[in-house]
Write a protein that binds this DNA or RNA. Sequence first.
DNA 1: TGGCTATATGCTCATATGGCGATATGTGGC
DNA 2: GCCACATATCGCCATATGAGCATATAGCCA
Lengths: 115, 115
Amino acid sequence: MNASQTTIQLDRIFGALADSTRRAILDRAYRGEVTVNELVAGFDLSQPTISKHLKVLERAGLISRGREAQFRPVRIEAPALAGADRWLGAYRRLWEDRLGRLDRVVEDLKQQGDA
Amino acid sequence: MNASQTTIQLDRIFGALADSTRRAILDRAYRGEVTVNELVAGFDLSQPTISKHLKVLERAGLISRGREAQFRPVRIEAPALAGADRWLGAYRRLWEDRLGRLDRVVEDLKQQGDA
DNA sequence: TGGCTATATGCTCATATGGCGATATGTGGC
DNA sequence: GCCACATATCGCCATATGAGCATATAGCCA
């Protein structure tokens, strides 16, 4: 199951997403390219701290950095997010489709039967 | 964006998913209820270590524990996974639909134009 | 060149995490 | 009540993470 992304990549992707500041940075990058200082202005964290978060996101492949003069604009990267989405997608039938709901009913009945 | 899950819950969910052992435990629980010792047998990790992983998963709401005699069977929980999926879903247009692909083309052109 | 601005890196600190072995707790069966 | 088995918790270690301040690097512009 989920052979398309390496284990370590998924570790990094989910690890990067496990922090609200980094998720907020992604939200911001989703709306368009953004510079480090713009992020610093928006987050009430020091510039080095933001840079460190960006490094985590970059290492996970969730963002890439451009180079425009002395700016290093942050751009969101779809493939890593798509990888996480693909991993989660394998479980989607648990809550999404008719078959999944039916499974849950069966599970619940089994639970109650055992109790 | 993504108001349905609290920040801390998402921190825990993604944090729990950021470990390959825990993802493998979920894979296993997805195929049906499983006991701690069954997991220990399958993972080449000590029983306390597995229990600790289970605690992380439980705290994130990704599993729940039953009680059948002296067993505490592990059951996968859809809502937390669905929460993570919903969060990721907000970005899905980046890689999935026609509009997303068009956006990417525009972005790329803009990039090249700026370079 | 020199100075200004944007960003990165080094250091330190406090806390979190993953692993282990040893041991405690809980539950069913004799 | 006691034993055996399943699971949880404790204490410990090594390493990782997030934060800050101070400082270094890098690119523009005068």
